Simulated assay, not measured.
Amino acid sequence: MSDFAAFFIDQAEASSHVQFVYDLVACRFVFVNAAYQQVLRGTLGQENKELPALLQRLHPDDLAYVALYWEKWTQGQMTDEVEVRLQSPGQPHQWFCLTPYYQRDARGRVLLGGTLRDVSVMKRYQENADLFNSRKNATLEILSHDLSGAFIMVQQIAEYLGEEMPVPVNGQVAQMLRLLETTSHDSVKMIRELINLEFLTSANSDLKVNRVDVGAVLRVPLDQLQTGQRLLGHHFQYSLPAEPIYANLDVNKFTQVLINLVSNALKFTPDEGHVAVHVEPGPDCVRIHVVDDGIGIAPAMQPYLFERFTKARRPGLRGETTTGLGLALCKTIVEWHHGSISVESTPDKGTTFTVEIPRSEALGRHVPVGLVETKK
């Protein structure tokens, strides 16, 4: 053994992550480091016997995903890291991140190497952060509509009183009415600027994509919106798929897109109107429909909706202002996720926005033979 080979073996043995080399033709490990015992609770030297039981611990929702990437790996086409879950009875599932390596030697022998890291703590931290952000953003949107509506009403009352007051009028009363009108207008503007700033800040941060159950992560903001429907003055409902559907999402950015679309629906739907969100599976995608029975969008304006500073922008029914950036940013974020967004609308009948994003795996594919052999 060369000094270099000995150095790398010593380095692998000292690692706190699982390092391994698997002979694809022989269907067996030829090297596993000592971290296997601590990280996977295995017995060193028994890894080939223990492999079938280890694979049985894969989360059922990850099987198609693992099969897809196993096929790519065995063909030397896999360069991305992969995250999978292992189940243990009575314990929270563990998250592992695999960094793969592929080599075909001069004799045609294929070796699959890699590093397996336990990232459970990081994943749970991320899940909690995403949960907090989803609730925060939905709550901010509810409060912004509720507070904006109250301030707009005060502004309109002040305007009405100013017009109806007899002339001559007490100068101090007129001044107070103007102050009330101006303060209400500025308050509405400040509230919307706060929400827009939150959306812009989220959109301009780095994309952090994780494979997630779309229904599970969208349930959180949708629950918040449904809880606040009485404050919003609308009938709000949503539906989610019965089975998990996985996609690669930046959860914070994508939930902001959903909330922005719901916010637009609320702006242009009269009080006591209906707004709904439906999440459903497609053949290779996830579809999200945001539906309202509001005032709709004129056909001439629909081609311009997703342009920056679009000429299709207009104030909401309660005087809500708009920057003309919201739908353009939604389109950008959806496209970052390799998806698409479209609109169908009929004036005075309502609008439906549809977002489609690809699933993270091709469902219904057979598990490749190589993976079946490793389970024997």
Rank of each mutant, 00 (worst) to 15 (best):
A34I: 07
L258A: 04
T321N: 11
R117D: 13
D61L: 06
Q46P: 00
F96N: 02
G76P: 08
L55R: 03
R57K: 10
M153C: 15
N264F: 05
L194G: 10
A6L: 11
Q156F: 08
R313P: 00
Q126E: 15
L317G: 06
H278K: 11
T79G: 09
N170H: 14
H93C: 10
M190S: 15
V257L: 05
E181Y: 04
Q226G: 04
N252S: 13
R57G: 03
V209M: 12
Q103M: 14
V279L: 14
P347V: 13
H235C: 07
P166G: 00
Q11F: 12
D284L: 09
N133I: 07
T321D: 11
R318V: 08
I152Y: 13
K376Q: 15
L86R: 04
Q87G: 02
G296F: 12
K331P: 07
V39P: 08
D105Y: 07
T43Q: 06
H145V: 04
V257R: 08
G90Y: 09
N210A: 14
V334G: 03
R365M: 13
S120W: 06
V279C: 13
T269K: 10
S205P: 06
V30M: 10
T79P: 02
E335L: 01
T322W: 06
G273P: 03
L179A: 11
Q91C: 09
V343Y: 12
K267R: 13
L200E: 15
Q156V: 07
G233E: 12
T139V: 11
E198G: 09
G319R: 02
E361S: 15
D10T: 02
G42M: 04
D130I: 02
L305K: 04
H185P: 05
L327W: 01
L44W: 01
T227A: 13
V66L: 13
L55P: 00
P52N: 05
W73I: 02
A6M: 15
E320K: 00
E81C: 10
Q126D: 14
K49N: 12
V251H: 14
T374G: 07
Y125S: 13
R85C: 06
K123F: 07
Q77T: 08
V251W: 11
F8T: 07
T99L: 11
P92F: 09
V18W: 01
G149Y: 01
G42V: 00
L40K: 06
E164S: 07
I157W: 14
D284I: 05
E344T: 14
L266K: 01
T201L: 15
S15A: 09
L140N: 13
S340P: 01
G215H: 00
C97Y: 03
S340L: 04
A300L: 11
P92E: 11
V209I: 10
L112E: 06
F96I: 00
G76K: 12
V167S: 10
V217A: 07
L24A: 02
A14S: 12
L24V: 03
S187R: 10
N252P: 01
V277I: 09
T115N: 12
R109P: 10
M176V: 05
L58M: 05
P303E: 06
V121T: 06
L327Y: 02
S263R: 02
S360M: 09
A67G: 14
